[in-house]
Amino acid sequence: MLMNSPKNAIGIFDSGFGGLTVFKAIAEKLPNYNYIYLGDNARSPYGDHSFATVYQYTLECVEWLFKQGCSLVILACNTASAKALRNIQQLDLPNKYPNHRVLGVIRPTAEIIGEMSSNKSIGVLGTRGTVKSESYLIEINKFFPDVKVYQQSCPMWVPLIENGEHESDGADYFVKEYLDALLQQSGEIDTILLACTHYPLLVPKIEKYLHPGVELVTQGDIVATSLADYLDRHQEIENILSKDGLQAFFTSGDTDAFDAHASVFLGTALASKPMK
């Protein structure tokens, strides 16, 4: 364990900055717990990588968080949840880490999003990797077999956000392009899920081009509520988590760049540390 890392913390992982939107919601709902956030910025974005590559990268980061004393890790990344979570849960945890848990963001969202659509028609905006995996089609169908799901990949959105261009006039072109492509698939879509934790930073622009009566859904509060319920139901995990209200942030990339971008996501300054 690195010095000065919070003990017995909840680990929160993302390929970059997007997971900070989930971290913020979790920390606001469960402020007493210790948290370690890890962004794999040196290898971000994950969206266009193969399943094997995303699995390998994600497993390396999860194991790093385990070494920091995190017995519970949240994959606050839709691409990692889609491409790596199942293998980690079914192969790695039982064989190497039977007392550890890794949770994702897809299932908690799929469990409730069907209730938000009056027309039973949901649109999903995500990375190429998330869309190609069809994870949302599969998971939503398990809970709401009568709901139709339409998907649209948005390959330019994460690069725009990671490079601080999400508020620029040029971003409007790509926001409108992908949103129009989704809504053209069905006039019945009344609920749109932002299936990437980066995308909440584009909400003001998305709302400019959203059709009247269409609800936009982000994941932070959903995941936070699901985690609180999980801890209530799994006292064997909850009891070993420390509650000092401490937080630490790590990145595989440049710490100065991480701090500058992270402040946009969190609305406050922070000082990250290098992943070693």
Rank of each mutant, 00 (worst) to 15 (best):
F174P: 07
L202K: 06
L183A: 00
P204R: 11
D169Y: 10
S186F: 07
F174L: 05
Y178E: 00
H166Q: 11
L179G: 10
E139Q: 15
F174R: 08
P145I: 11
I140C: 10
T191I: 00
D169R: 13
Q152N: 10
V147P: 04
L179I: 04
G170L: 07
L193T: 04
P155W: 08
E167H: 13
K148Q: 11
H198N: 10
V149N: 09
L201T: 05
L193M: 12
F143C: 07
I206M: 11
E165Y: 12
K208E: 06
A171Y: 06
P155S: 10
K176R: 11
A171R: 02
K142Q: 15
E165M: 15
V175S: 09
I140R: 13
G170Y: 09
V203W: 01
P204F: 11
V203F: 00
V149D: 09
S153H: 12
K142L: 14
D180Y: 07
Y173A: 13
N141M: 02
N141P: 01
P145N: 12
P145C: 15
K142I: 01
T191Q: 11
E177W: 02
G164R: 05
E177N: 03
L179N: 04
V203S: 14
E188G: 00
Y209Q: 00
S186V: 12
I192Y: 03
I192V: 14
V203N: 01
Y199I: 02
I189K: 07
Q184Y: 15
P145Q: 14
Y178P: 01
L179M: 08
T197R: 06
G164Y: 08
F144S: 04
G187N: 12
D146C: 07
H166L: 07
G164H: 10
T197S: 15
Y150K: 09
E177M: 09
Q185F: 11
G170S: 14
L183D: 02
F174N: 05
Q151I: 10
L202A: 03
Q185R: 14
